[in-house]
Amino acid sequence: MALASDHIRATVVEATEFPDLSRQYRVTGVPKTIVNGKTEILGAVPEETFVEQALQDIKTR
């Protein structure tokens, strides 16, 4: 998705190496995705579901 849009930045975080980030976003299981610091997506969900949830609060043209 990051490749498909200049607006998207995608970061993969190794949870055990950054316990402060894991605590901040209450990561108790992986994968857990956080969008713009608030929207949470738990688990490996199908692409359609992921896009739906990830972009629910994002402004589009």
């Binding site: 998207i8 359609e48 972009l55």
Partner: peptide
């Protein structure tokens, strides 16, 4: 469908994916 939706994004989106080894 995903590509079309992503192309329409009009503000910065920061996606963080937490994983373990």
């Amino acid at each position: 469908d995903t590509l079309a939706r992503v192309a329409a994004i009009d503000e910065p989106v920061d996606i963080q994916v937490f994983v373990t080894p």
